[in-house]
Design a protein around this nucleic acid. Structure first.
Length: 202
DNA sequence: GCTCCGATGCTCT
DNA sequence: GAGCATCGGAGCC
């Protein structure tokens, strides 16, 4: 299991790649392999909700100890983050995309679509997994589970700038996004760069 | 009470 | 590749 409190956030983001996240809805387990993550670096990161020491009701979970779930609602969509670092330290890793594994039929029903479109975006995967604001501030392992081991090994992890962060100075270009090269479920990838083994070495 | 706006996604060109 | 739909929280009046 990852030590979310003592491991640097940027390292957590890379360690999460290849792990399996699961959530149970009505007795049906839905799970997927994490393939795309982004870091948000707390008070100093202009793109982070915790920037400048701001602290409001809806971001309270971000200030919990590492290992908690921070959910953010935007335009009716839910985005999921794993909180990192010690308490009162608003850093976290957003899960940007997963590769469906179990409960795919349920995901298709929830999303009303199939293929990469099922989970290749932060709001898409929460909808596919059936995650709701009920899990806000819960501890990882409570309603949302993460595999202890890393069953899938990425051949190459691409390190690049984050998506949807304009006009944030150096933070717009900071290499805080990590994803599996060649995996079709990553956000915003070119078709020509996909690999037949989806980027895994096993 | 009201306005502004975003860590998005979908649709159409 | 660009434009827009559309919801709730934050912050200010």
């Amino acid at each position: 299991m990852i030590d979310f409190i003592n491991t640097p956030t940027t390292e957590v983001a890379q360690l999460l790649i290849g792990k399996i996240i699961s959530h149970e809805v009505d007795g049906v387990v839905r799970s997927g392999i994490i393939v795309d993550t982004e870091c948000y670096m707390g008070e100093v990161d202009e793109a982070s909700h915790g920037f400048g020491g701001k602290r409001t009701q809806r971001m309270e979970a971000m200030f919990l100890e590492g290992g908690h779930i921070y959910l953010y609602e935007m335009r009716g969509h839910i985005l999921m983050n794993f909180v990192c670092g010690p308490i009162d330290h608003p850093e976290g890793v957003m899960i940007r995309a997963i590769e469906p594994l179990e409960g795919i039929a349920a995901m298709i029903q929830a999303r009303q679509t199939t293929g990469p479109n099922l989970t290749n975006g932060p709001a898409k995967l929460t909808q596919a997994l059936g995650i709701t604001m009920n899990s806000y501030g819960s501890l990882l392992g409570d309603t949302i589970h993460l595999s202890v081991s890393t069953p899938y090994k990425a051949r190459t992890i691409i390190k690049t700038s984050r998506i949807g962060i304009p006009n944030k100075g150096e933070w717009t270009y900071a290499p805080l996004r990590f994803y599996v090269r060649g995996n079709p479920y990553c956000s915003n990838v070119k078709k020509s760069t996909l690999d037949t083994d989806r980027g895994w070495t096993i």
